[in-house]
């Protein structure tokens, strides 16, 4: 008898577990605009189809120049999300500094996003002119000019923040330019003048990317937008830049072709809409 009951319990467990896993979820999806959740945007820096690894990992640009990278930093601001009805949700006064050396900085969290199906995202690379000229007391956190240490993101002598910088080493850099063949490309210039000096060019660029899979914000769904950022585009964008000639960029006037290039380096790879 013990035999039979053990067998029965065993079979029951088997059937129950098989039934359980074959159940299909069929819940109705209702968008309640009064509910909110967060959206996380991940910036995954890459070089072409390869991972971006700082140090000595060799990469090659379209000019055939081999190089390695030691730094990639950029400011992200003025993010907005557009939903399928065309309504734009803005996130003003939020500034983020993405640094390849800091894994946490590559994840940006937008809070209190109303429920909806979002189909497009826009953001600015850099710090807008209004913020750039605001009193230093209003520029805290990643905008604090004294916070960067050796990894400067601010031109104290002329034009405000460095919107993006990429640094590394390449044998293409003439030793007459830099004995260690290092290159440093710093892009800035919000279009203002410093202390009454002449206005710089405006190198602020706004990037708009479609969300191929809609980000479906719900009370129980906090989407994650996974962006791929291809640093190779900084050299191989609309403008072909060779490290033999473009290896030391430190003023807004000469940085415009670089800004035009990095405007094309962002792509939404995929979107996760997982239930919480």
């Amino acid at each position: 008898m013990i035999t039979n009951s053990v067998v029965r319990i065993f079979l029951l467990a088997l059937v129950t577990s098989a039934t359980f896993v074959s159940c299909k979820k069929t819940e109705e999806d209702v968008i309640d605009p009064d509910t909110k959740n967060s959206v996380t945007v991940e910036f995954e820096n890459r070089v072409g189809d390869q991972k971006l690894i700082l140090g000595t990992t060799p990469y090659k640009n379209a000019s055939g120049e081999s190089f390695s990278l030691t730094a990639l930093n950029y400011f992200v601001s003025n993010i907005s999300l557009k939903n399928e009805n065309g309504t734009v949700q803005k996130f003003p006064n939020q500034y983020f500094l993405v640094k390849q050396t800091d894994a946490k900085s590559k994840l940006i969290t937008l809070k209190d996003v109303p429920s909806g199906n979002y189909t497009e995202m826009s953001f600015m690379i850099g710090v807008d002119s209004l913020k750039s000229v605001s009193p230093v007391t209003e520029r805290t956190g990643v905008l604090d000019p004294t916070s960067y240490g050796d990894d400067g993101m601010y031109w104290s002598w002329n034009s405000g923040y460095i919107f993006l910088k990429i640094e590394g080493t390449s044998v293409a850099v003439p030793k007459t330019v830099n004995a260690n063949q290092n290159f440093a490309i710093h892009v800035g210039g919000y279009g203002g003048g410093w202390n009454g000096s002449a206005k710089t060019v405006n190198n602020l660029r706004t990037i708009t990317v479609p969300l191929t899979t809609k980000a479906t914000v719900r009370a129980n769904i906090a989407p994650e937008v996974h962006l791929f950022v291809d640093a190779l585009k900084i050299f191989d964008g609309p403008n072909k830049l060779s490290l033999a000639t473009t290896n030391s960029v430190h003023s807004p006037a000469v940085a415009t072709p670089v800004a035009e290039n990095y405007k094309t380096m962002f792509q939404v790879d995929h979107v996760h809409n997982n239930k919480q």
Partner: peptide, 8 residues
């Protein structure tokens, strides 16, 4: 894997 990813 990564059915919805363009690159992965």
């Amino acid at each position: 894997s990564h059915l919805n990813s363009l690159n992965l």
